[in-house]
């Protein structure tokens, strides 16, 4: 637990002091969502119809934007070489890094979502529900993304490869997340239990497994 908190606090401190990077992701999310009404037109009926897709796809792009930086600085400054020789399981380090990454990039998106959802014409109740869904999918995107990011760090073509490899894995998350909000709009929040259960089960599988996979990949990358 000590090592988990140490890496979590180090990454939070370090990234919070690098304000440009920290602010970039939520600003990108807001701009991406705002662009849709500008392109489609201000009719609330049309916007609320496609709002679930707009919110989910925009959060997916915003999450992707931050993923490249997740492990690259630790590789370039040699931190991983030293960490591997520490008496700490690497999977714990990975869990700490992914958690810090989610707090800095995923959590802000979930907190902004209710305002953007209301702007797109959704009711207050659905806006809060959308926020919960974005909260859940950003966890999954951070976990799946971390796995891909650890694979591509030494390729020199990180961002392009990351996007190419991540999108196919993000598709089920996108479908079920947008579906959950759609079903809630049509028949109330109780109507979207099935997609929520799918997203929860995906999270509960990825949470313990991904840090172990990332640890194995990073060890292989350092060697």
């Amino acid at each position: 637990m000590g090592a988990f908190l140490a890496i979590l606090m180090r990454d939070l401190r370090s990234d919070l002091r690098n304000r440009a990077q920290f602010v970039m992701i939520p600003v990108f999310y807001i701009l991406a969502v705002i662009l849709f009404p500008l392109g489609i037109g201000p009719e609330t009926g049309t916007l609320s119809l496609i709002a679930p897709g707009i919110l989910v796809v925009s959060s997916l792009f915003a999450s992707l934007l931050a993923l490249e930086k997740l492990f690259s600085s630790d590789i370039s400054d040699g931190s991983f070489e030293s960490i591997i020789l520490c008496p700490v399981p690497i999977s714990v380090i990975m869990a700490g890094k992914i958690t810090a990454h989610w707090i800095l990039t995923g959590l802000p998106l979930a907190l902004i979502t209710p305002f953007l959802a209301i702007m797109l014409g959704l009711s207050f109740e659905i806006a809060l529900f959308s926020s919960l869904i974005i909260l859940l999918i950003t966890i999954i995107l951070s976990l799946i993304g971390a796995m891909i990011a650890s694979l591509v760090i030494n390729t020199g073509k990180g961002s392009v490869l990351l996007a190419l490899l991540s999108f196919p894995l993000f598709i089920p998350v996108l479908i079920f997340a947008a579906g959950a909000i759609d079903l809630a709009i049509i028949g109330g929040i109780g109507n979207s239990i099935a997609p929520i259960l799918f997203l929860c089960s995906l999270t509960s599988i990825a949470l313990p497994v991904v840090p172990i996979i990332c640890a194995a990949i990073i060890k292989w990358q350092v060697r």
Binding site: D77, E81, I83
Partner: peptide
């Protein structure tokens, strides 16, 4: 390579490695 984070102070970096 230094294995140090540029945004952290000398003490913060060493505290991190001490915990590791």
């Amino acid at each position: 390579s230094s294995s140090l984070k540029k945004q952290l102070t000398v003490r913060e970096n060493l505290t991190f490695w001490s915990k590791m």
